[in-house]
């Protein structure tokens, strides 16, 4: 993994467009006015807690759910108007493993080859490619139900790309898979993207978000921020982050609630994270303020926020905003 490369064919048309997308189940709003675009060859990551609405958005884009309002355009086709027109252009990995466990590796690939009408002349070669990609060479006759997690996921990806779709929807493809297999899976995604495949992938692993070209943070059906991991870390938090190491967390936390220009203060391991407006100013100001209360931190320094910091911060801000609006 060499970190996210830039989209291979940036500047081409947007392969996936969501415009003001809304999906309701009865009275429950699962997707709440979501808009975004994904360029050709781009890897877009959906990051959000369980129940945020990631799967619902992906299913709507695949034409499996009808949007309550708004538009979804995939490969230039309006999904609600022509869901069938979209199918041949997309590959889909659903959140729950959905290949046939009572069929062998080869039989599953042959099945999807037939369903997508992959030209017969090319089918053998593409199956070979998928088998190699999944690392299943020599196990073509194995019953899929007997394979372990990492292989299952890579085989599912292999089935999803058998017909060379320009767009891939991967719904939590790496959940429940050990870290080494996850890394390998992301290498495959990057290879596909470098060949121009547009990828929308959801995850709840923070570290995986770093592998995406762009991230969309989703919470309660709303898209609360989008941007590259670097940009989100720079601006998403809306301030600077300080790390404060000390011996007694309790009194320190108490005192810092009243410190000037400290917007938020939270425990992080055995240290504190402070959200401030301006790092330089606070680095000068805080030690004096604490000294006046008789407190002496061991060390205080500026750190760059992780995506997790950004995410926690943005969700807290979103909840506060929703609270105010209500």
């Amino acid at each position: 993994m060499n970190g996210p490369a830039q989209p291979a064919q940036a500047g081409k048309i947007d392969q996936v467009v969501a415009e003001d997308l809304v999906k309701r189940f009865g009275n429950f709003v699962a997707v709440d006015h979501v808009s975004f675009r994904i360029a050709s060859g781009e890897i877009m990551g959906f990051l959000g807690p369980n129940g945020a609405g990631k799967s619902t958005i992906i299913r709507t884009l695949c034409g499996l759910l009808r949007p309550s309002s708004g538009r979804a355009i995939v490969a230039g086709i309006d999904v609600a108007r022509d869901p069938e027109g979209v199918r041949q252009h997309i590959g889909y990995m659903s959140q729950k493993f959905s290949l046939y466990r009572d069929l062998t590796v080869e039989e599953n690939l042959e099945f999807f080859g037939g369903i997508y009408s992959v030209p017969r002349a090319e089918l053998r070669e593409r199956m070979r490619f998928a088998i190699d990609m999944a690392g299943l060479a020599g196990r073509e006759q194995a019953m899929v139900g007997t394979l372990a997690g990492g292989w299952l996921q890579r085989l599912a990806l292999g089935c999803a790309v058998l017909h060379r779709p320009p767009i891939l929807f991967l719904d939590e493809p790496t959940s429940g898979v050990e870290p080494a297999s996850r890394r390998r899976f992301w290498d495959l995604i990057h290879n596909l993207a470098s060949e121009g495949v547009t990828v929308l992938v959801s995850t709840h692993y923070m570290e995986e978000a770093e592998y995406c070209h762009r991230i969309a943070l989703i919470n309660h059906g709303r898209l609360i921020a989008t941007g590259s991991p670097a940009k989100l870390k720079q601006t998403g938090i809306g301030g600077d982050l300080l790390l404060l190491e000390c011996d007694a967390l309790g009194p320190m936390l108490e005192a810092l609630q009243h410190a000037p220009n400290v917007r938020d203060c939270s425990v992080f391991g055995d240290a504190l994270h402070l959200l401030v407006d301006n790092a330089e100013k606070s680095l000068a100001e805080i030690p004096d303020f604490l000294a006046s209360k008789g407190l002496h931190p061991r060390r205080i320094s500026r750190i760059s926020p992780s995506l997790e910091d950004v995410f926690v911060q943005l969700i807290a801000a979103d909840v506060a905003a929703a609270g105010k609006a209500a």
Partner: peptide, 9 residues
């Protein structure tokens, strides 16, 4: 397996 089947052509 239905979810994947219905996503195909």
């Amino acid at each position: 397996t239905m979810e994947l089947l219905v996503s195909t052509p």
